[in-house]
Amino acid sequence: MSEILRVENLTTRLSARDGSAAAVDGVSFSVHAGRTLGLVGESGSGKSLTCLSILRLLPPALSQAGGSVWFKGENLFDKSPRAMTAIRGGQIGMILQDPMTSINPLFTIGDQVGEVFRYHRGVSGRRNLWARAVETLRRVHIPAAEERVGSYPHQFSGGMRQRIAIGMNVGCEPDLLIADEPTTALDVTIRLQILSLLREIQAARGMAMILVTHDLHLVSRFCDEVAVMYGGRIVEQGPVARVFNDPAHPYTKGLIGAVPKIARHAERLAVIPGQPPLAGEHGAGCRFAPRCAKAQPRCFSHYPDDRRFEDDRRAVACWVPEGLPS
């Protein structure tokens, strides 16, 4: 099982704010071929910023600070902008929540899916490009691909548009696919179809995948590993089944308890009091301490180091983790 991506101590600063607070603060994880990492967290936890930082797609108001992103043994932070352009869409694909942010409403689907092959594979001629587009549309199960290749984006449903966006991003057989809330805007029945499609493509090619989501149900069904983010840091990571069955961080535990379950007849949901910190606005200690029932004085003054356990397969950043000696 080869490591495709290793993120080391990634730190992204919001330069617009005083003191340049870190919105992503020392994030480290790795993703292996054929495996899926679930990146979980609430809004402002830094999960989307982490993905944008990896691809160096940050908005101008943000400036990169530290860390390194090793993709197949090379640091992406050392690459030239031109080299990054070749990597994006070629070796690393990215899917966003709203497919219309990556699809141009004024061009046909055939032109846009074909464009990927023209740019990354040097295919030329409209006929050739459309042929590649039809092939790609078939792969993402667009019915009647030959007839639909000349259609415009508005002639497709939301689920079909997401399939097209996926096609554009996996057409060049990337080694890594980053999917940022790819099904959040879709109906529940369509959601599963899209995720099954992603898994089918992954299985065929051994692609590594990062699935960013706030939906714990999807993580437990579709991911191998999970990293839980809070306030710009990963507070806990490990194999999905272990983390969800036996959460070590009080935030992970609280998050799992706050999700209503269909069949469990709870009279009241467990609640995490208070609200998440705004990006970059927190003290020196654990970001979760102000909402944590177990918080001690040191939780407010010092950020806990990562503790590895269960043969180094899991890690938690907490002074008083569940089930571990503090």
Binding site: E42, S43, H214, L216, G254, L255, A258, V259, P260, R268, L269, A270, V271, I272, P273, Q275, P276
Partner: peptide
């Protein structure tokens, strides 16, 4: 968000 959802539902 999930944690806020639970607060409002309760």
């Amino acid at each position: 968000d999930v944690s806020i959802q639970a607060q409002v539902l309760n």
